[in-house]
């Protein structure tokens, strides 16, 4: 079943067209990976799924992105509510400069949950889901910035999960991390798909093949090929896809 459906999406930065007529389903409780060389539009597309592109001046969009049955680019769409439903994890871990506990509690508190006991439970649940509870449970008061990069990234995942999203977008979440932290995050991401729909942008093709169910290959703002990950990596239909995954360019 399709959780998010992208239909005839065109996106311009000023006069430059960054995305050309994108049509793509994102299936529920699956991991969809976006791969492709730098500047091919995959980060742009993932950011248009929670309307983070609104922050970019001169960015204009046509076409539609439907979440369940609601067009998120419709005028009446509440962007803050949308971003609550579609969480995001960024390339650089970006915890707030405050304690681990406050980082996680931040979203729920701002969205109106004041009861301390409920917040406590949410914090623990989110940290457990992000596979970092055991490492930090004894010093939740510690500043999140004092953790290692991999731990910070898992704190950011926990923070995104704490507001109870339905979709989780990850924009190259492991490109700033060492291999051991990367492995932990990959394992965690696979575990998350039973509760969430995930989209991950990655430069690491092994990563895409290890964790994703579907893969979309991007080139110059177009989707060249979209299929099951296994097929893309073993038997791609297009020559460009084969050239890219076999490392001939990019």
């Amino acid at each position: 079943m399709s959780k998010v459906t992208i239909k005839e999406l065109n996106l311009f930065y000023g006069k430059f067209q960054a995305l050309h007529n994108i049509n793509l389903p994102i299936l529920k409780n699956e991991i969809t990976a976006f791969i492709g060389p730098s500047g091919c539009g995959k980060s742009t597309l993932i950011k248009s799924l929670n309307r983070m592109n609104d922050l970019v001046e001169g960015c204009t969009i046509s076409g539609e992105v439907k979440m369940d049955d609601e067009n998120i680019y419709a005028k009446e769409c509440n962007i803050n509510l949308l971003r609550k439903r579609v969480g995001m994890v960024f390339q650089q871990p970006n915890p707030f400069p405050m304690s681990i506990y406050d980082n996680i509690a931040y979203g729920p508190r701002t969205h109106g949950i004041k009861n301390k006991q409920i917040v406590d439970e949410l914090v623990e649940k989110s940290l457990r889901k992000a596979a970092i509870w055991e490492e930090v449970k004894d010093d939740l008061k510690k500043n999140a910035l004092s953790l290692s990069g991999g731990q910070q990234q898992r704190i950011c995942i926990a923070r995104a999960l704490a507001v109870d999203p339905e979709v989780l977008l990850m924009d190259e979440p492991t490109s700033a991390l060492d291999p051991i932290s990367t492995a932990k995050i990959e394992e965690l991401v696979i575990g998350l798909k039973k509760d969430y729909t995930l989209v991950i942008v990655t430069h690491n093709m092994q990563q895409a093949s290890r964790i994703s169910d579907k893969t979309a290959f991007f080139l110059n703002g177009k989707i060249i090929e979209y299929d099951e990950t296994r097929k893309i990596f073993t038997n791609p239909k297009k020559q460009e896809t084969e050239d890219y995954i076999s490392g001939r360019f990019g």
Binding site: N80, L82, G87, M88, N94, P95, F96, P97, Y106
Partner: peptide
């Protein structure tokens, strides 16, 4: 204050004002 902090706030579903008031100003 780095742009990533603003993105973090907005991506949690905070409004622009909440992001400025609760994330950027304290930092």
């Amino acid at each position: 204050i780095p742009l990533t902090q603003r993105e973090a706030g907005l991506a949690l579903g905070l409004s622009r004002w909440e992001t400025v008031n609760l994330v950027i100003l304290p930092a």
